[in-house]
Amino acid sequence: MGMGQDTAMADVQFVRSAAGGYGQPAHAGIVGVSQPDVHAPEGRGDAYRITVVSAGVSEHSATGRLGDAVAVRTQETLQRHGHECELRHIALKDFAADIAVAAVDYHMSDALRGVFEQVISSDALIAATPVFKASYSGLFKSFWDIVDVDAIVNMPVVLVATGGSRRHALVPDTAMRSLFAFLRAIPTPTSLLAAGEDWGSAELEARQRRAGEELAAMILAGLRSTMAAADADAAHDAPSQIPVR
């Protein structure tokens, strides 16, 4: 990371949860909830919640650090508009065994239920994965495979990836964007992939800032609650049976 990013990260603390990884304390019993009440803070009395979900496999991974850098840019933008912002970080590697078990027999540990609650209760997500053989990692895919299909409907999200070379540059906009389209989340127009030569570059820092500002704009516009209201109206107005022509 460049010097500017290190400075930005120095004053930021990501909340660590009792479940392991980072986030708010875990509470069981949320699996199967399709979509929670939309969090809508007003002013400084309540903080927006931005969660980084990282599939980085090493301690302090480049993938997690890139996701955190975007979260900081989002926080800076929200603060300029008079809003507090709580940053949370979930390291999926800490739950790899739980994810594997859930993928096979659908048994959810309390720790994994806590992770799901952190994700669902967020105002926005930053989804970060290393790239292996031109796609997201198996750990990253396995986690989203066991998340309820309706859990992050209309959720603003930034797509972030790291790779060994720029040959993987399209992964966020091909593999990742199609996955989150299926989940009916709303990715920001700007996505990021950082290869070895990108770290510390002005171009990468500019994309981090732009993605963070786009995510903040979605949050400030109340995009998730607006879309939820639109979905409700569409469901109410839909004909009971679509005629076959």
Rank of each mutant, 00 (worst) to 15 (best):
M3S: 13
M3C: 08
G4S: 05
Q5S: 09
A8P: 05
A8K: 01
D11E: 09
D11V: 07
Q13G: 04
R16K: 11
A19K: 04
G20W: 06
Q24R: 14
A26Q: 12
G29Y: 05
I30E: 00
I30F: 10
V33G: 10
S34N: 12
Q35E: 12
Q35T: 09
P36L: 00
V38L: 02
H39I: 08
P41R: 01
R44W: 01
D46A: 14
A47C: 02
A47N: 08
I50T: 06
V53P: 02
A55P: 03
A55D: 11
G56Y: 06
G56W: 00
S61Q: 02
T63S: 01
G64H: 02
G67K: 06
Q75C: 10
L78F: 01
R80E: 15
H81D: 14
H81V: 05
H83C: 15
E84R: 15
C85M: 14
E86W: 14
E86G: 14
A91G: 12
A91K: 10
L92P: 13
A96Q: 13
D98A: 12
I99S: 04
A100W: 14
A102G: 10
A102Y: 01
A103F: 11
V104Q: 14
Y106P: 06
S109V: 04
D110L: 15
D110G: 15
G114T: 06
F116E: 13
V119Q: 03
V119M: 07
V119L: 12
S121N: 12
S122C: 03
A124H: 05
L125S: 00
T129E: 05
P130M: 10
F132K: 08
K133V: 11
S137F: 02
G138F: 05
L139F: 08
D145T: 07
V147M: 09
V147C: 05
V149S: 12
V149T: 13
D150P: 04
A151T: 04
V153L: 11
V153K: 14
G164H: 13
R166Y: 04
H168F: 14
L170F: 12
P172N: 11
M176T: 00
R177C: 01
L179Y: 08
F180T: 08
L183N: 00
R184P: 00
A185Q: 05
A185L: 02
P189R: 08
L193Y: 02
E197S: 15
R207A: 00
R207Y: 00
G212R: 05
A217V: 09
L220H: 03
S225E: 15
M227N: 08
M227H: 03
A228C: 10
A229Y: 13
A230D: 11
D231H: 03
D233P: 03
H236P: 08
D237M: 06
A238E: 03
P239V: 07
S240N: 07
Q241D: 08
I242F: 06
V244K: 13
R245P: 12
